[in-house]
Design a protein around this nucleic acid. Structure first.
Lengths: 347, 347
DNA sequence: TTCTCCTAGTTAATCGTTTAACCAGTTAAA
DNA sequence: TTTAACTGGTTAAACGATTAACTAGGAGAA
């Protein structure tokens, strides 16, 4: 049951292990006769040879392995999707990912990066669980690294990929506007995350462009974005003097609260009140009744992009053609049944 | 910026690298003078030496790395929790996890195991995304492996950890019964998964023990467990001739559908109808109104157990004291506000 | 004196690859 | 006839640790 190694193949084929190595790594351009090459390959497949990557890695300083370090517990499905996106594309390209979670503790982070470096990982993906800007983790500064779901304060040398919050929220607003809504309410958060700021900025700009006066009275913000916050906000807006015809919610969870409010106030969705979410939380957006129209965050795609990009960089280290890029990806509009056309004449 | 290696430390301390190795791996029992030991340690910390695990792994055949292979896309938060549990305990014990997802494709699985073996992983965690029984993946038969969220048809040599579906569902039934309910409805699935079978068996046994006659008319099963299936089932039960006072749902998603049904029928939760979920889906159970009482699946704990156990085995390979064990973990009852006492006299 | 046993290390083999440098035999060019 | 260039390989030195086997010098015992 011992693992078969290069020298076993060499012995079986009656050549030196150098020759086997040359053949098997396709470096045998004219250095090995067809005859010998055949023998070597036959022996290799017969013995089911598979190279020991640890030995190869020691020699070549390459490991075909990348380290993914995430700043916080990876238990959300969003985190899962980023991971899955990265892992799947890595796998497709013959790479593997070692994953470590630092719980946002910087001492831990240092140890983690070190543990990965000790294993000869060739590059890093640094993933954040919520969209934010950050400074270089010092040890990563000189390592090939892609920043995933976060961007750098000084993006001079490394690439990053984040969702385009502003464009996506604008898309959502366009959708409501296209459906005839002008009196659109906003239910959001004051917590100054990138998402919170950019989405509400998109709302404001759209309302300005629509020339809706006094739209500020149609906005309600809480610090957090739980269902109950959405409920409170929606109640305030729906029972207020100026009732919006549509509600744009910062998150699907808030939208879930808005559903409860609409229900309590006796407003039918979407006939009497349209509701738009954000995130496309699986199991919420679909499971609500009526199913929630929302924007799908590109977690999977971002994970994909990060891995693809990093591997590109690592596989073409010589050609300096690859520049650093700050990639943004726009969310996809998921049309379900919570938004209906509004006809001003009827209202 | 070159990495410092053993021989650099040796040169700095004025000794051979063998000596450095002995000192640094605490194998220097009486073979190295105190004086030299001090010098070596000083040099090592001064140069910030950290060993190259690839080289060490080549020599010792150990890698302090374990492979986690999962059978299907790891995008659910449940999968995330299992992963996080495994990764965190591994990390705490100085181990790292390489994670690969085989998309339930057995050819892929073979390649995955191979890719991990090539990297000298010392053992495996084989994780399933839904609770099931399976046969040995052939290549894993002779590898140290823990089966996570799945168990073996012939559990003779390897350990596994799964939730105790029957005991957990019994607990949920006990909770409803303790609250005075006898006419308890079941909303479940016919899909013959371990969870589906065991949970409904627990329901049936509890009803039998309660001596509720004709409880079969209180059961409704669909093939899948989406919110809409729960809605359909709850409508049938709530509008039927024999209206239950409590509903035990196979999943939180079905419970979500049951909420809609109760709402539509005009039954207040929990005053007029109690609802019990299963899974404790984050963002659903909490966000529903009223918050859903449910059973929390021990995903994180199972991940923890698997890693802990595997590392125990790997670190004490000599002592054969560790037997194979089929571990079951019972779910935790999460009391929220969807279950209220029922008073028979009042009904 | 000779033998044995410590002490405090060092030497060198080894893990399984890759790859630069070499080499013997032919063939082609000058 | 030299010289150079191929052809089809082989040898041996890495990569960076670990560890069994050795050693030099001194002490103690017979």
């Amino acid at each position: 049951m011992k693992k078969v190694k290069l020298s076993d193949v060499a012995a079986a084929a009656g050549v030196s292990s150098a020759t086997v190595s040359l053949v098997l790594s396709d470096n045998a351009d004219g250095r090995v006769s067809e005859n010998v090459e055949k023998r070597v390959r036959a022996a290799a497949t017969k013995l089911r040879y598979s190279p020991n990557l640890v030995a190869r890695s020691l020699r070549t300083q390459k490991s075909k392995t990348i380290g993914l370090i995430s700043d916080t517990v990876a238990t959300t499905n969003f985190a899962g999707q980023m991971l899955a996106g990265a892992e799947e594309t890595a796998w497709k390209r013959g790479w593997l990912i070692i994953f470590v979670d630092t719980s946002a503790d910087s001492r831990n982070e240092e140890r983690a990066i070190n543990a990965l470096l000790q294993r000869n990982v060739e590059g890093f993906i640094y993933a954040s669980m919520f969209h934010r800007k950050l400074d270089y983790p010092p040890q990563l500064k000189y390592q090939p690294t892609i920043f995933l779901h976060c961007s750098l304060n000084s993006p001079d040398t490394h690439s990053s990929v984040v969702p385009d919050e502003y464009a996506s929220a604008s898309l959502a607003m366009d959708y409501l506007i296209k459906n005839g809504h002008r009196e659109i309410g906003w239910i959001g958060i004051t917590n100054p995350t990138v998402g919170g700021c950019e989405r509400s900025r998109a709302y404001v700009d759209a309302m300005k462009k629509l020339k809706v006066t006094g739209y500020k009275s149609l906005m309600f913000n809480t610090f957090e974005s739980y269902a109950n916050d959405g409920y409170v906000g929606a109640m305030k807006l729906l029972k207020g003097a100026r009732r919006p015809t549509a509600l744009f919610c910062f998150s699907d969870r808030m939208a879930m609260g808005a559903y409860r409010a609409a229900n309590e106030v006796g407003l039918r969705i979407p006939q009497e009140i349209s509701i738009m979410g954000f995130d496309n939380q699986p199991h919420i957006a679909e499971a609500l009744w009526p199913p929630l129209s929302t924007m799908q965050l590109p977690h999977y795609e971002m994970g994909t992009w990060a891995a693809e990009r990093l591997i590109d960089e690592l596989e073409n280290q010589d050609s300096e053609s690859i520049l650093c890029e700050q990639k943004v990806i726009t969310c996809k509009l998921i049309e379900r049944d919570s938004v209906a056309p509004h006809h001003p004449m009827k209202g």
